[in-house]
Design a protein around this nucleic acid. Sequence first.
DNA 1: AGCAGGGCTGACCAAATGGTCAAACTGGTT
DNA 2: AACCAGTTTGACCATTTGGTCAGCCCTGCT
Lengths: 198, 198
Amino acid sequence: MAITDPEKRILQAARKVFVEYGFVGARMQRIADEAGISKASLHYYFRSKEKLFDRIFAEYMDRVMPLLNTWNDDSDDWESKVRLFVRQLTTIYGDTSLHFMVQELRRDPAKLISRLEKKKRGRNRFITYYERLMADGLVREQDPRALAITMHAVCAYPQLNAPMMGAALRMNNKGYEAYLKNEYTEQATELLIRLMKK
Amino acid sequence: MAITDPEKRILQAARKVFVEYGFVGARMQRIADEAGISKASLHYYFRSKEKLFDRIFAEYMDRVMPLLNTWNDDSDDWESKVRLFVRQLTTIYGDTSLHFMVQELRRDPAKLISRLEKKKRGRNRFITYYERLMADGLVREQDPRALAITMHAVCAYPQLNAPMMGAALRMNNKGYEAYLKNEYTEQATELLIRLMKK
DNA sequence: AGCAGGGCTGACCAAATGGTCAAACTGGTT
DNA sequence: AACCAGTTTGACCATTTGGTCAGCCCTGCT
């Protein structure tokens, strides 16, 4: 609790509370407490719950969206590219609390759309890239869309639905988390590469 | 709006409202309206919001849980087994509103645990099955846990995070949904089978 | 008709919650 | 000291929401 800019303290508190409880479940009082100020002060800095939420949500959005469009690189070494991509996806999806975004996106899809239209220029880069690789005969012929979905699914889902998958594998919280971090990511990467290999 | 058992009408209304808004966002008044009765009547049948919610949640849980343990069959024809499994997963995950369960499970993981302990007898059946197949040299050698996760991920995620993936693929709602139903499921099945083949 | 009991509801309540406001406090400037 | 602008807050408000309750209505029984 260092003496820092109140606005930053508020944002940090809001992040925490919104991610944990979602927009509907979050309480302004709680955010104020967490930031160490009064609720009135909170409203002094951010006029409304909605305004504050939008700020937080946009933040997360801007961090995740680029991942849907990566793959600028045009090199032929797609294998290490996949490795890098998976590493990025899992880490960002992990500490970015994807579940928060999924939840809020469902509550108000308009938010995504408006924020998305701007960046929607051109086709998905992974797809373009993979099509090029196919044309050059470097990878297996298949619908790159299914591949794209699979990549994201394999990285995101185990974290998104951790309680269920952990239970299915008969692991407790710690064990499942450890498995994800220590073994699964590596295994998933290999699976994905195998899917693309000719 | 046929004249049916009020309790059934309530349950149906509750299902709809809880799934759409989640426990925190759901309103008892709304459920009552949807069921065509007064809020007081609603409380007459189900003492509290929590009690009503538990009933609904348990319902969904009982429908999804078996999927985590399928694979009774011991035949060697694992390929058609995979095909069947994927079909089941996608349909049940689809109309069962997996997002609802994921959301509520995160809100109160204890609910899963208590309801899970009962069925937690023995190991995961898919894993046991796959280990047998490996021992018999019928499939590729690999950690079946990663495979189990991948299967669920590939079936659930595209529906769970539809807005994001749809956007990533530059499709509108309808288009994305159509793609999932008409092509993706098939492609995903083939991907999974290819992952297991020797 | 009278009555009993379950189903159903309008009116009501207490608590929670997002938001407002006038007043107090702070540090810097003249 | 007087003043000013930006910051902070306790007290307060209107609304929403889960839940309660006394009583009405309906049906079947005597």
